[in-house]
Simulated scan of single mutants.
Amino acid sequence: MAQTQHTVDETRPERNCSEFDLLLVAIPLALLAGVGSVVLFPIPQFVGVTLGAAVAACLVGYSIYAIAQSAYMSAEETAGSHHTTAE
């Protein structure tokens, strides 16, 4: 039985963080900051957790809005490239 060996190209693609990757990092950080603020500052626990959750909810809302906008724009561009006008 003959075996063939495939060489693997060792070049790696550049890793670029998109806006959505950063949002995925920021959401749990906002929650942790809310919980951490309870430890660092003399505020009630529900206030810190609520503030962290509010910031995280705003980030989630922004990401949903941004995703919807970018999907809408790309759909319009795709649809616009298929339409031809007869003049």
Rank of each mutant, 00 (worst) to 15 (best):
Val47Met: 10
Glu19Gln: 04
Ala53Thr: 11
Gly80Pro: 01
Phe41Met: 11
Leu32Glu: 08
Glu14Ser: 03
Ala79Ser: 12
Ser18Val: 05
His83Met: 08
Val55Thr: 07
Gly61Trp: 04
Thr50Gln: 01
Thr50Met: 10
Met1Pro: 03
Ser37Asp: 03
Ala30Gln: 12
Asp9Asn: 15
Thr7His: 11
Thr7Ala: 10
Gln69Met: 12
His83Phe: 02
Phe46Ile: 03
Pro28Arg: 11
Asp21Val: 05
Phe46Asn: 12
Ser74Thr: 11
Phe41His: 04
Asn16Gly: 11
Met1Ser: 11
Leu22Phe: 02
Glu77Trp: 09
Ser70Glu: 14
Ser81Ala: 15
Tyr62Ser: 01
Pro42Thr: 14
Ala56Met: 05
Phe46Leu: 02
Ile43Gln: 12
Leu32Asn: 04
Glu77Met: 11
Thr11Pro: 06
Pro44Met: 02
Ile64His: 05
Ser70Arg: 09
Val60His: 07
Gly52His: 01
His82Met: 08
Gly34Met: 06
Gly80Tyr: 12
Ala30Cys: 14
Ala75Val: 04
Ser63Pro: 00
His82Asp: 13
Leu59Ile: 01
Glu76His: 03
Val47His: 01
Ile43Phe: 04
Glu19Pro: 02
Ile27Cys: 05
Ser37Ala: 12
Thr85Cys: 09
Val8Trp: 12
Ile43Thr: 08
Cys58Gly: 13
Leu40Ala: 04
Phe41Leu: 15
Leu40Val: 09
Tyr72Cys: 01
Ala68Glu: 11
Ile43Asp: 08
Gly80Val: 08
Ala68Val: 05
Ala66Thr: 13
Thr78Gln: 10
Val38Tyr: 07
Ile64Phe: 09
Ala54Gly: 08
Ala79Val: 08
Ser63Gly: 07
Glu10Gln: 14
Glu10Arg: 15
Pro13Ile: 06
Gly80Met: 06
Thr85Trp: 10
Ala66Asp: 14
Gly36His: 02
Phe46Val: 14
Gln45Phe: 05
Thr7Trp: 10
Ala30Trp: 06
Gly80Trp: 09
Leu59Asp: 00
Phe41Ile: 15
Thr78Tyr: 08
Leu59Lys: 00
Pro44Phe: 09
Pro44Asn: 10
Thr50His: 07
Ser18Ala: 07
Gln5Ile: 00
Glu10Lys: 10
Val38Pro: 02
Asp21Glu: 15
Leu23Cys: 05
Glu87Pro: 02
Ile64Glu: 03
Gln3Asp: 07
Tyr72Ile: 01
Gly52Leu: 04
Ser74Arg: 13
Thr78Ile: 12
Asp9Glu: 13
Glu76Trp: 03
Leu24Thr: 15
Ala86Leu: 13
Gln5Val: 07
Asn16Ala: 13
Tyr65Arg: 10
Ala2Thr: 13
Ala68Arg: 13
Pro13Asn: 06
Val39Ser: 07
Arg15Gln: 15
Leu29Ala: 13
Glu76Phe: 00
Asp9Tyr: 09
Gly48Asp: 00
Pro13Val: 05
Val49Asp: 00
Ile64Ala: 10
Ser81Leu: 13
Leu59Tyr: 00
Thr85Tyr: 14
Ala30Pro: 04
Thr78Lys: 03
Cys17Ser: 13
